[in-house]
Each structure stands twice: as C-alpha cells, then as structure tokens.
Design a binder for these strands. Sequence first.
DNA 1: AAGACGGGGTA
DNA 2: TACCCAGTCTT
Length: 350
Amino acid sequence: MIFPKKLITWYLQNKRSMPWRETTDPYRIWLSEIILQQTRVAQGLPYYLSFIDHYPTVFDLANAKEEEVLKLWQGLGYYSRARNLHTTAKYIANNLEGVFPTTYKDLLQLKGVGDYTASAIASICYNEVVPVVDGNVYRVLSRYFNVDTPINSTQGIKEFKKLAWEMIDPEQPATFNQAIMEFGALQCKPQSPYCIVCPLNDSCEALKKGTVASLPIKLKKLKVKKRYFNYLIFSVKDQQTIIKQRKGKGIWQNLYEFPLIETEKEVGLDYIKDNDVFKSLLNNVDYDIILHETEFKIHKLSHQHLYTRFYIIKTEEPPKINGESNIVGIEKIREYPVPILIGNFIDSFF
DNA sequence: AAGACGGGGTA
DNA sequence: TACCCAGTCTT
C-alpha cells in the first residue's frame, strides 16, 4: 500500500471525534478552520461550540456587534481572526445571500482565508482536489521524504506544496487532507513521535537516516521586544472605573483595557504622577494612588514581553475623561472584550 | 522576505 | 526554556 492509502487507513482507525467532522456545512467548516489557525484543538473546541451556540448561521454572526464577537473570542488570541471572521460573515450574508464561495480560488478572496483555509474548505466541503499544507503536513512530509528545506522559506513553501500535490489522493481529497493533518497531530508529533508503531516506518526516509527529531527545519527565532505597561486602575467611590478601547495598529486592536502609560523602561510612582495623561485625567481631582504589586506582571506574547504594573487610583469624583475613555460601573466591566492580561487582573482585583 | 499578531500546552 | 499549534496579513 502506498502513502496516501496507508494514511487514510490509519486515519479511519484513529481519528478523533470532533463536532466539525459531523458536517460539510461550509459555515461550520470555515468557522472551525479560522478558530484552529495556530491553535490546538483542545483550546479551540470550546470556542467553536460557543460560536455555534450563539451564531447558528452566518446571518446570526453577520448581525452581531463586533464587540460581542470579540468577547466570545476573548482568550483565543490573534484577534484579527475574530475581526476578519465578522467582516467575512457580513460580506457573505449581505453580498452573497449567505452562500459561501465553492472553489479554492474564490474562497481565497475572503478576508482571513489564506492558502491553507481555502484549501481546507474547498476539499472538505466540495471535494475539490487541493492539498492543505499546515504545520502538521510540513512535519509529516519533511520527515517522510527527509527534506531539510526550511518550511518557512519561499523555497520550502513551494517545495512542500508540490509534494502535497503529488501525494494527495484525487479520489478522496477531503479524507486525505484530514488524514495527513490528524496523522501529524497524533502520530508524527513534533516531539517523541511514535515511529516504532508507525504504519509508514518502513518507508520513512527520516527514520532511515535518523533525522526525525531534527525535522522539519524552521528558520530564525524572532527576537522578543520588552515593553513596559503602566495601567491606571481608577476606583471612583469604589463603584466605577475607566476603560478604553485600543485603536489603530498593534496588539489587541479593538479590545478594551485600562488607561495605559507605556514607557521605555521601568518607571516609578513619581514618573506616573508627572505624566501628562495622568495629570489631565486628575486635573483638580483629589486622589489616592498606590502601586498594586511591587513585582512586574510579565505577560508573554510570542513576539514581546509586557512588563506590567497596575496603579490603583481612588477618587471621590469622576476623573476628567475625554471622548476615548469610558467611565463604567464595576459590575459592567466583565461585559467588555479584554486581553487575558486585563481579564486576569479584573478577576483578581474586582 | 521579514515582521506582526496571542495564548496555552509540552518536554 | 524552547518549541509548537488545522496561518494570515502587512510592510
């Protein structure tokens, strides 16, 4: 038996049960694929169930407020996925009468749908013969053929796509694509793959050459930037605080947070008190300020470390907010979509 | 071609 | 710690 057949046989015997495997409804497949981008099944599953529960159809999602979508997405990360998800739902509901595109080429035009996701939807929903190449596929192919071209190089992307084209079973693209991904996730794992019991261990080139553990090759590690976040936690009569939506570029776009003073390095109370944002908020307002915890809370993103401190500012009258900030009752703050860093603070403090 | 973009799991 | 996860978009 050859590679695709063995893979499919293995898949039919070992696949996990997942809700999106019970359907070919493009709405549900699309939703699951967006959620699962750079995300483990175990982490994405509850979000998928929640989204299907709140938005059973693409029209329900299209009619939602972005803030509500972001709130449901809270904690999953890569929030542009949620914003693009909403944009695409509105586009399909309003411009395509709720009907998804049915080809790889047309699916690729949707916001948030790249090469992988367009291939996944086209093959799973419409049996189009297009190979998916995700992290699992890179790993399986690089090992099976002992290819050391970096998977994140232009050459590597091209090369592995070509290999995937050569391997895909044109009679059952949907099953093959899911099989190779599931195989990578469960059997040909990044660390400690089960080569001893692998159905492909008699023909795996990397196993033969002893290079399994070092494949696939990936270029460069990004250097992590340090940032210093000083958050101002207002407590007006112990019942209100100030919250603000992040706008523009950068992390956490359109999510909410507390008023923020970002600095180049560690600063103290004196710096905060002399900061213009701080002074404009508290112009002629009596306040009491304390540093919540001496130690930094270090929030680690993949590409930056946020050295975070929270300053508690108690007042008896409302600060002087401008149009960008909102004074909100403490009982309402959990309704806003916030990054995990802020959510954790809210849970520990309020 | 290289960066930006989250948060959590695993060894 | 370091690496990885059913990647995509921007610069």
